[in-house]
Write a protein that binds this DNA or RNA. Structure first.
Lengths: 243, 243
DNA sequence: TTGAGGCATATTGCATGCAAACATCCTAGA
DNA sequence: TCTAGGATGTTTGCATGCAATATGCCTCAA
């Protein structure tokens, strides 16, 4: 048995992992697998299988599970091990509400503290994203999109804010990806991103906050429909990843 | 050698820990020790000492360190183990900014969704807190105070919000405690809490948000002064706990 | 006296072994 | 046929041993 891996090659065992950070790297790998939907929600993860696949022993893997449990990606039941947590549309909505709140905090500060370099970096990412949009590269578009939001939050120069925002974004990433598959959303999202960029350039904190909020709410409307559609298709099974 | 423990008896080794959740319980114990200031910021934690003190082996302790690292309470350096992280006043301020943002999200929702039972529970806690205030029981007062804020956030019925709020509160708890030792702050804080309770009772989301915000900013002003005073006393050593 | 190098000890990182809990399958009795 | 119970294999939880790394100490040369 093996857990599928769409994001990395399946060539087999890892070479050698550096000593000292094995659990961290393992956590990163497993996190990627979960976020990419390689391991379906609700799946119980067998330690032996994953240790063989990753080429590490159980100790660093179990430490990685503790990290991922803290991030809300897996649940650890006594004597039953780690299970990939499934998130309901309601929970995704709750998390998005939090992300909006965090971006609201970021908005004012970002407009005060963003350096011209940071804004230029975001403009560069925006151009890349538009390019990906025009080429129809969904995955790339989606990835850059997420990066832009993270960079805006980073502009606030608040490490706590950046850390929490990154963790929560990662936790619901695979569900939001579902919403972004609707290509009719793209054009609107690109337009909204231009508004966001304008507000940041003009350093209008209150405006930036409102534009970001509207952007997320509009995106969530689409995502929710997709998720609920998939849920009813799946007939109350586990939530699908990005199939 | 032994790490002091003001919060629990020092009678020595633990009895037996239940199988299946040892790392969780160990994490709780160590978290308590850090939050209470029993282990000073900047201290490198020796695994052997702590395993002997807690009566568990290194494996669950090391898993507990991973949990606490995720919470931002310790830092794990390769081949050097876990160190209690010290937080600068700037970082505490950044975290409080985030907490204010999270409470802002909570405020509107709490006023929509709080059940009468939840409000009654908060009123009960408030009465207890006033009682502790009148008896001069600082630790108890502080603890109930924190619980009230958590309960208000819980009223929003947003699990993500509650989880993040709890984690961030814990991370900076010992620093805020320093600010609350100024007893002249107590009277004002109790008054502000009454305003908070009123806003919640009347389900005035916007008002609740503003009152909470003002409450935190006023508290932070005192805390910052205390922290900066202690910092200069300590002459750029590690941040003191609750000495 | 100081500092570089090297040896001895302490400490951490990880793999592994063993015991407890769990899961599965089989059988006996109703 | 169905179910209780138990035998057997599987999986997890934890302790421990070994190797790698860090740390402290000592020596010796400049």
């Amino acid at each position: 048995m093996q857990y599928a891996s769409k994001t990395t090659d399946q060539s087999g065992l890892e070479a050698t992992w550096p000593r000292g950070r094995r659990s961290t790297f393992v956590a990163q790998r497993v996190r990627d697998m979960i976020v990419a939907g390689d391991i379906e929600a609700g799946t119980r993860i067998n330690e032996r299988v994953l240790t063989e696949q990753l080429g590490v022993s159980r100790t660093p893997l179990r430490e990685a599970f503790k990290i991922l449990e803290g991030e809300g990606l897996v649940r650890i039941d006594p004597n039953r091990g780690a299970t990939v947590v499934g998130i309901s549309p309601e929970e995704v909505e709750a998390a998005i509400e939090v992300l909006i709140g965090l971006e609201s905090v970021a908005a004012a500060r970002a407009c005060e503290r963003a350096t011209p370099q940071m804004i230029a970096e975001i403009e560069r990412l925006h151009a890349e994203m538009v390019d990906a949009y025009q080429r129809g590269e969904l995955m790339e578009y989606f990835h850059i999109n997420q990066t832009i939001h993270q960079r805006i939050v980073d502009c606030a120069h608040n490490a706590t804010l950046s850390r929490i925002y990154a963790a929560e974004s990662a936790r619901i990433r695979r569900y939001r990806y579902a919403g972004n598959r609707r290509s009719e959303r793209w054009a609107r999202a690109v337009f909204e991103h231009e508004q966001i960029l304008d507000a940041l350039r003009q350093r209008e904190g209150a405006l930036l906050r409102e534009v970001l909020r509207a952007h997320h709410l509009s995106g969530w409307g689409v995502t929710r429909n997709v998720l609920e559609g998939e849920l009813s298709k799946a007939e109350n099974q586990t939530l699908p990843g990005d199939r």
